[in-house]
């Protein structure tokens, strides 16, 4: 077990999977000579050469589609988007080509491809560079979607994604790349579709994923000071959802769902649907949601902070479901 950054954990997963299978290659903007816009691919060009670490022009739609075609031709592409804000340009290929290929070919053409890159807001990048797209991609049948929050999960989920024979969306976090954590060496696989309890608790369940894990954990610390025991459930996979784990809200009878995205038709709405349908009689209060404010992200630091999900907002929501306020 080594202590690695989230960035280096992803790098290790890529390196190990490329060593393991010569059909795996990485393609995207700045992945080679520049060593990655966020240095996730540092050293890979040197080890694997330009055939397998492919620098592209700024043409997300085009290289995403070339990746899909390469997967049709038997390869296992990993397509890096510099951010998911730019991946929106490639949605036609993700939605219309990758997600549907198996179905519309009557099961003939599997699509072992990974689309990955940072998702959500960093700091003061304003409206077009601060967006969380998970509800968009999770809407689509034929895709799997993962959003690791820790270095260990980042490594284990990326390895699973690369070995999966279906298209997998890997949502990383610009603010997570520097985060450190213990990562098992070598063969460390986190199965897609399994949530993880990151902190045990008995009074309220905080459901989160990706960057909102740290928000939820800070909120749990603050709640502990108020004698509230919060359980923190990290979804890790957004499609498929770990429904059994989510229904563990039965244990605390109260839930707060935290996400980076906008509230309307968000991931939280899907979770609330599941919880009200299958755990209605176990709930002691309506489920509360904490999301980004329903506005494009502002540039100003104070306004940006006000727009984002925060530990304070989660604490307030937890106190509401506990009827403490």
């Amino acid at each position: 077990m080594a202590t690695l950054t989230y960035r280096d954990a992803l790098n290790q997963a890529l390196r190990e999977e490329m060593q393991r299978d010569s059909n795996v290659f990485l393609m995207g903007e700045e992945v080679g000579v520049y060593q990655g816009a966020y240095k996730v691919s540092r050293g890979l060009l040197e080890e694997f050469g330009p055939k397998r670490i492919v620098d592209t022009p700024i043409a997300e739609l085009g290289f995403a589609g070339i990746g899909v075609g390469a997967a049709m031709g038997g390869l296992r592409p990993v397509i890096e988007f510099m951010t998911w804000n730019f991946a929106v340009l490639a949605l036609d290929q993700i939605v219309n080509s990758a997600a549907k290929m198996l179905y519309m070919s009557g099961g003939q053409i599997p699509m072992p491809i990974v689309f990955r890159g940072p998702n959500g807001a960093a700091l003061q990048l304003s409206s077009q560079h601060s967006q969380a797209w998970e509800s968009w991609v999770s809407h689509i049948p034929g895709l799997k979607v993962v959003a690791p929050a820790t270095p260990a999960d980042a490594k284990g989920l990326l390895k699973s994604a690369i070995r999966d024979n279906n298209p997998v969306i890997v949502l990383e976090g610009e603010m997570l790349y520097n985060q450190k954590g213990e990562v098992p060496d070598g063969e460390h696989i986190v199965p897609i579709g399994r949530a993880d309890i990151k902190r045990e608790g008995s009074d309220v369940t905080l459901v989160c994923h990706s960057k909102t894990l740290s928000v939820a954990l800070k909120a749990a610390d603050q709640l502990a000071e108020q004698d509230v025991s919060a359980e923190v459930l990290d979804l890790r996979s957004l499609r498929p959802l770990d429904e059994a784990a989510i229904l563990s809200v039965r244990k605390t009878n109260r839930a707060v769902v935290v996400e980076e995205g906008w509230p309307h038709a968000g991931i939280g709405a899907q979770l609330v649907d599941l919880i009200q349908r299958d755990a209605f009689d176990d709930l002691d209060a309506p489920v509360q949601r904490v999301t980004q404010a329903d506005v494009p992200m502002p540039y100003n630091k104070l306004l940006e902070r006000a727009a984002k999900a925060s530990p304070e907002k989660v604490v307030a929501a937890a106190r509401r479901v506990l009827y403490l306020d």
Partner: peptide, 28 residues
């Protein structure tokens, strides 16, 4: 579609399959 004969589809979005064609060539 008939993958066994290298017939890789019929695609419905105008121009959407052009990169797929290049991707097949990339794989070869």
């Amino acid at each position: 579609f008939d993958a066994t004969r290298g017939f890789m589809g019929g695609h419905g979005i105008v121009g959407g399959h052009i990169p797929l064609g290049a991707g097949l060539a990339f794989a070869s």
